[in-house]
């Protein structure tokens, strides 16, 4: 009797879920909202600013070509290589800037921690898939582009359960 009762109780608690709202993010239509504009780092205090660790953004006007990001990445993913650029910036005598291979990057953000010149941050852009491996290598010019963000869905919790919407 107790076995039958237990099975009925188990089924009952499953059936109750028919009335509960669905907890599924319908991804391409809905996109989850993140905190802030991506992971940033303040070299003065040595503490980061919370945010999603997505694709990087490179501020050309701040980058000095010091290679610290590339050195930081050396033992981790070896995703960052320094490349020559055509632009001339007076703080960047060597005219080199980081180029990031997202086929290798693990998005740990330690390159952002390493940059002392407020030049390299991360953004909320995480949709980086491509059809070729070479398209995953982002040149300094591509890294300078601000991503278009359209993420607006948040988790809502009420008596009827948690939903995205």
């Amino acid at each position: 009797m107790s076995t039958a009762g237990g099975i009925i109780r188990a089924l009952n608690s499953g059936i109750k879920h028919l009335a509960i709202r669905r907890f599924t993010l319908r991804y391409p239509e809905q996109k989850l909202k993140f905190v802030g504009d991506g992971f940033q780092f303040n070299p003065e205090t040595g503490v980061g600013i919370a945010g999603l660790r997505g694709r990087h953004i490179l501020y050309h006007e701040h980058c000095t070509g010091c290679q610290l990001c590339s050195v930081a990445c050396e033992g981790i993913a070896e995703a960052i290589g320094m490349v020559k650029i055509d632009e001339t910036w007076k703080q960047n005598k060597k005219a080199i800037m980081p180029q990031i291979d997202y086929g290798k990057c693990v998005f740990c953000g330690l390159c952002v921690d390493a940059c002392p010149f407020y030049a390299l941050y991360m953004t909320n852009d995480y949709e980086l898939s491509s059809f070729t491996k070479s398209a995953l290598i982002y040149t300094p010019a591509q890294l300078a582009v601000k991503p278009k963000i359209s993420q607006d869905v948040e988790i809502k919790i009420d008596d009827r359960g948690a939903t995205h919407g």
Binding site: F23, L25, L32, F34, V35, G36, G38, F39, F41, V47, G48, I49, A50, G51, L52, R53, V106, F107, C108, G109, L110, D113, M122, I155, A162
Partner: peptide
């Protein structure tokens, strides 16, 4: 997913957080 979202807000990554470092944590709470 609820807790993954919480840690994502804290650390910036869903699964491999790399949040704890010798000397504290990478960033303050949002």
């Amino acid at each position: 997913e609820l807790f993954i979202d919480l840690l994502e807000a804290m650390s910036g990554a869903r699964v491999t957080h790399a949040y704890l470092v010798p000397g504290g944590v990478r960033n303050d709470l949002p």
